[in-house]
Every structure is written in structure tokens, then in C-alpha cells.
Amino acid sequence: MNDAPLQPSAGIPVVTETARPASWKTFYRKLAKNKAALAGAFIVLVFVLLAILAPIIAPYDPLKMNIVNKLQGPSAEHWLGTDDKGRDILSRLLWGSRISLTVGILSTLLGATVGIVLGIVSGYYGRWIDSLIMRFCDVLLAFPGILLALAIVSVLGASTTNVIIAVAFFAVPTFARIVRGSTLGVKKLEYIDAIKAMGAKDSRIIFRHILPNILSPIIVQSTLYIASAIITAAALSFLGMGTRPPDPEWGTMLSQGRSYIRQAPHITLFPGLFILLIVVGFNLFGDGLRDALDPKTKK
């Protein structure tokens, strides 16, 4: 059976377009009323701009060492001070934002893509396929995220690329479960039965009618998971299993500065603040997206 335009049949309602969530105007209006979400979006935007403009606005080479100036506190010359090797902390933080955001975004995209495919297949086809995929997800969810990531990186080796793979791997079951539940709800709607009765292929039903209607929870979960991915990546680097020195990754900077926490606390203070701010920003923005995209929200 080909995938030609569907023709109306007697007694079967014609579906001219996919049912959609609230309009964009309603979405923007709800989001604009949420001050916390706007604050989160502003924080995220600032960090994205810092990452993009790091080569231009960073005052020093983040890898250049100057032992004479090591462990200096904040000053007019070095706004956030220097580390144990005399490197400018501000420059390292700006360049490190590129690594942290890249890991967070790429691992989320990779994990979400695989999770969406598994979730839709599981929810749409059901039966033994559903049981097999869900048991696989249960096994992954039985392990704490950081331990599973540590195990994967231990096998693959410590590097930024392997951190992305490890963090993405743990994201798969979370997205798969969310997408499966949403797919089960949409699959039961009458217009899906009507489309099936008119002879539409499964691929057309999935990609043109089911997937567009379950994007809201996917978008929200993606935004929230980026924050978790950044924390996990920083934790792996802190433990020496992530981005390797001398690359300026925030977790690595925390690890290197812990030996000087009494003598020069600024070495760990500022990387910790950057991690805190970016995580809070994504969480606030994600919560705002969830409220704005929820059709049940009246405010």
C-alpha cells in the first residue's frame, strides 16, 4: 500500500491536520509571566554567549602557564585570580564553558534521539517489543547515573568524547519511558484509529501524527537533562575520568584546586559558582517550559 494522500471514506472522519498543543502565542504568554523561567533563560543565554565569544573576550591564553604569578587572588590584572600554575582563571572558565555546554547538549541530543526511537517503537507496537525495551530500561535505571557513567568511561577510557557517550547512555531509558507513556496516550485517540482505517502506514502515523504531539515533554526533559549532564560530566572530570588536563573543564579545575582550598580558595570557588549558575539556569528554564507547555495550566 502506497503512502498517497488519504481519501475520505464513509462513516470515517477526515483528519486534515494533526492535533496540536496550545498555540505559540499562548505558550509565549505563559512563559513571559513566569519570572523564574525568564531568569533561567537569561542565565543560559549569557553562558551560551560566553562560550561562543570565549576566543574574543578571554583576556589570556587558558593554557599558558606563568609560575611567577601562581595562586594570585582576584586583581585588576587577573579578575578572578590565577591557579597553581599561574593560568588566568577567568580565561579558563570562559573556555571551559564551551566544553561543559558541548558535553551537556550533545549527550542530551544523542540520548534523546535513541530514547525517542525506543520509546515510540515500544509504545506504538507493544507486546513483546514493549516488554523487551522496558526491561532493558529497567536494568539501566537500576544503577545510579554516576556509577553507570563511571563504568562506561572506565571501559572506553577518559576523554571528552567518551564522557558524552557515557552521559548519553544513561539518558536513553529516561527519554524512552517518557516517550512511551506519551505515545500510549496519543495512540488511543480516535483520530489515530481513523488514520489507520484509511490505510496510512505506520511510519506516517508515527512521524506525522504521534511524534509532533509528544514533543512538549521531550523538550522539557531535554532542557532539564542538560543540567544533569553538565553535573555528571563535571563529576567525572573531578574524579579524573573525564576531560583530561590541561583542558579547562570546570570539574577538572575543581579537582586541581582542592589541594589549595585553604591557601587560595578562589581556585575552586569560581568554577563551583559557574557550575551552580548554569545548572540553576537550565532548571529554572526547564520548569518554566513545563508550565508553559502544559495544557492543563490555567494561569
Rank of each mutant, 00 (worst) to 15 (best):
54 A>K: 06
228 S>C: 01
96 G>Y: 09
239 L>W: 02
22 A>V: 14
26 T>Q: 14
12 I>G: 01
153 V>E: 06
148 L>T: 05
234 A>I: 02
136 F>A: 14
118 L>T: 07
212 P>I: 11
154 S>M: 03
255 S>T: 04
27 F>H: 11
274 F>A: 12
62 P>I: 04
124 Y>E: 11
213 N>Y: 01
256 Q>Y: 00
74 P>R: 07
250 W>K: 09
116 I>Y: 08
33 K>I: 00
239 L>N: 05
154 S>I: 01
264 A>Y: 08
215 L>A: 14
152 I>M: 11
79 W>K: 11
238 F>S: 00
109 L>K: 04
212 P>W: 09
276 L>I: 12
192 I>C: 02
199 G>N: 02
172 V>Q: 07
97 S>Y: 02
191 Y>P: 07
69 N>A: 15
290 R>F: 02
50 L>I: 15
207 F>W: 14
84 D>M: 14
120 I>Q: 04
253 M>H: 12
45 L>W: 05
116 I>T: 14
139 V>E: 09
235 A>N: 10
7 Q>S: 07
108 T>D: 10
4 A>K: 10
85 K>A: 14
222 S>H: 03
223 T>D: 09
292 A>P: 09
288 G>M: 02
5 P>A: 15
254 L>T: 06
176 A>Y: 09
40 G>R: 06
9 S>T: 09
110 L>Y: 08
229 A>S: 15
22 A>K: 12
182 S>D: 04
80 L>W: 11
142 A>D: 08
145 G>W: 04
54 A>W: 04
227 A>W: 01
73 G>F: 05
132 L>M: 15
205 I>M: 13
161 T>F: 13
9 S>P: 00
130 D>H: 15
49 L>H: 02
13 P>D: 15
105 I>L: 13
72 Q>E: 14
298 K>A: 11
297 T>V: 13
97 S>N: 05
67 I>D: 05
13 P>M: 10
215 L>P: 06
258 R>L: 13
292 A>N: 05
298 K>Y: 09
166 A>G: 10
111 G>T: 12
172 V>H: 05
269 L>D: 09
199 G>W: 00
80 L>P: 10
32 A>V: 13
21 P>W: 04
100 S>W: 02
5 P>I: 11
269 L>G: 10
